[in-house]
């Protein structure tokens, strides 16, 4: 059994008229099935409105299936009994660093989640310190959150998720609003968390970020268009175009130069150019 199993997932948003009567519905996910193995790094890509954020919210029960099922470690998200357990195992980090921080002081913000789980103060202290060290923000723990740059705020949001000691963190476009240095540091933290065993689901419009994943899931109009390694995905120009995606810069350059399709990184590319 995979850590997260999504089976024939259909998610419909109901539309209501002014009197609150449902008049129609919008199918945001249309029969999606996939497995996410423990410890893996999965990227989710696809056009605006393809269903990425909706899928993310289904993974920890923020949205419940209209049909089909989502299970985390064997527990169904539709099962009321397990919902808090599931939410503590699958954390979320969203796009906008400004909307995510709930406290004005950094360490209080990171402590918010564990406090809500009813964990005892000593243990919370330990978790908060650990999480802040992990994202490189320990020395800012008693600073006001408003004093931080966007990239720093995003790292605090990640620390908040890490302090829950989750098995998995779902990142929904975590770098979209950051400057290049902020993007780089957030990506490094994501990779480090993954190397320490945390399962990572990364939703992104940046193809060079998807390149870092073990596997890329491509959604189109609520359906699974592809589920394969970055190497296989970016070898298929036709599919990339069909999905409304683009090649990462390294791959685009590789293909323009007619270099070997096994080249996936800047280092390999530079080597090949100098041969």
């Amino acid at each position: 059994m995979a850590f997260i199993e999504v089976k024939n997932l259909i998610l419909e948003f109901a539309k209501y008229d002014d009197a609150g009567k449902p008049v129609s519905s919008k199918r945001a996910l249309d029969g999606v099935s996939l497995d996410i193995e423990k410890g893996s790094f999965v990227a989710v890509v696809g056009m605006n409105g393809s269903g990425k954020s909706t899928l993310a919210k289904c993974l920890n029960g923020l949205l419940l299936p209209t049909e089909g099922s989502v299970t985390v470690d064997g527990m169904s998200t539709a099962d009321d009994e397990h919902i808090w357990d599931i939410r503590s195992r699958v954390g979320m980090v969203f796009q906008n660093p400004d909307n995510q921080l709930v406290s004005s002081i950094v360490e209080d913000d990171v402590a918010f989640g564990p406090e809500n789980l009813g964990i005892e103060p000593d243990e919370i202290r330990r978790r908060v310190d650990d999480a802040l060290r992990k994202v490189g923000m320990y020395d800012k723990k008693d600073k006001g959150a408003h004093m931080l740059s966007g990239g720093q705020k995003q790292r605090i949001a990640i620390a908040g998720a890490v302090a829950m000691r989750p098995d998995c963190i779902v990142f929904d476009e975590p770098t979209a609003m950051l400057d290049p240095a902020g993007r780089k540091s957030v990506m490094e933290i994501i990779e480090e968390l993954n190397s320490e065993g945390i399962t990572v689901v990364l939703i992104t419009h940046f193809m060079e970020e998807a390149l870092e994943a073990d596997r890329v899931i491509v959604l189109r109009t609520g359906q699974l268009l592809a589920d394969r390694s970055p190497k296989e995905l970016f070898a298929d120009a036709e599919l990339v175009r069909e999905a409304g995606l683009e090649m990462p810069p390294v791959i685009e350059l590789r293909d323009r130069l007619g270099l070997d399709k096994s080249i996936m990184s800047k280092d390999e590319l530079v080597d090949a150019c100098l041969l």
Partner: peptide, 22 residues
């Protein structure tokens, strides 16, 4: 630019790496 948290476009970065070695 990197010193102030910015960067250069990918093409420029790759060109810089090639130039380091050639």
């Amino acid at each position: 630019l990197r010193e102030m948290g910015l960067s250069v476009p990918p093409a420029k970065e790759i060109a810089g790496r090639i130039k380091e070695r050639a």
